[in-house]
């Protein structure tokens, strides 16, 4: 018995910081979110609420969820639609396009210099401070002084297809939202995929050539199937981070003014997490914002379970992800 305990002491010791971190950064906020989601906490009853915190005096209510699910809040349907558009499109760039990109960089392009240049262009937004990145986009898309419209004109895009404002005209603003987030997010998948591609033994690829494959067949029949695990990882990771990331939208479209929504709502780029943020920090409806966040957390968990189901959980837990 004592032996058993002793065997556990060291691992526990090493894991303690991790558990503390998880507790502080994950479990307690989640618990708080769950709790607050069932209350009507706002700036108006804030002080009273603090005193009654976790006592019977706080009235628990399903009001927040009723407002969300019955669309009593008129912003909900649009927010939902924009969120789906946002997550699906940016995910397509970050998980799928990044794969194509990585194949190009790590497999098709033999020239190391060219490959390096490609890599760096996609890493730039990741290493640029977020606010600078956002500012550069704002300048870039400015209809009068920015380069974007001029570039498109040069490429032969007809004048009447160019918007007078990329920020405000709806399909354009949403396209912009996808581009901004896709460009900065693709590097994550790119790094994971290129590392995985490089770790595929050369023999395996050479074998496919000897067996009669050309480069595209080698990529499709050998390389991509071997990237199943990295693909799931990137997809799952990016889904979660996209569901909860609104910082670039916030920086470009703002959240403050405009009755607390910035211009994000009228520009059609109000995603769920940003809406929750606006409710909390522009309208100070903490309870309602928590309810919104809670729904996001649940959606995230459901999606992860779904991914694991699709890709096969058991096989994923096996050792050696890029098998030899």
């Amino acid at each position: 018995m004592a032996k058993k305990i002793r065997r556990w002491i060291l691992p526990l010791l090493f894991l303690t910081p991790l558990f503390i971190m998880i507790g502080l950064a994950w479990v307690s906020p989640l618990a708080l979110t769950v709790y607050l989601g069932f209350t009507d906490l706002s700036i108006r009853n804030f002080l009273a609420f603090i005193q009654d915190f976790f006592t019977d005096k706080v009235s628990l209510t399903l009001d927040n969820f009723r407002r969300i699910f019955t669309a009593e809040d008129p912003n909900i349907p649009l927010t939902l639609k924009v969120t789906v558009l946002y997550v699906v499109s940016v995910l397509a760039i970050n998980a799928f396009y990044a794969l194509v990109l990585s194949l190009a960089i790590a497999f098709f392009v033999r020239n190391e210099v060219l490959s390096m240049i490609l890599r760096i262009t996609w890493l730039l937004p990741r290493i640029t401070p977020g606010i600078i990145y956002a500012l550069m986009w704002i300048w870039f898309i400015d209809p009068r002084n920015g380069l974007l419209n001029d570039m498109l004109r040069l490429m032969g895009v007809p004048e009447d297809l160019l918007p007078d404002s990329w920020l405000l005209r709806t399909p354009y603003s949403q396209l912009l939202m996808i581009m901004i987030n896709g460009y900065v997010g693709a590097s994550f998948g790119m790094i994971v995929y290129t590392a995985a591609i490089k770790s595929i033994p050369t023999d395996l690829i050479n074998a496919s050539y000897v067996d009669g494959a050309n480069e595209f067949q080698a990529a499709r029949r050998v390389i991509i199937p071997l990237l199943k695990w990295p693909m799931l990882f990137v997809t799952a990771w990016q889904t979660l981070s996209l569901l909860s990331s609104y910082e670039y939208i916030l920086m470009v479209w703002g959240a403050g003014s405009g009755q607390g929504y910035g211009i994000a709502r009228s520009a059609g780029v109000m995603v769920w997490s940003l809406y929750s943020y606006s409710k909390a920090f522009a309208e100070y409806l903490y309870g309602y914002a928590s309810a919104l966040s809670l729904i996001l957390v649940i959606i995230g968990i459901v999606l992860i379970v779904l991914y694991f189901k699709i890709f096969g959980f058991r096989r994923m837990m096996e050792p050696s992800k890029v098998e030899v």
Partner: peptide, 10 residues
């Protein structure tokens, strides 16, 4: 036949 056999694992 490669030294590592290079069988396609998938």
């Amino acid at each position: 036949v490669f030294q590592s056999y290079a069988l396609y694992p998938h």
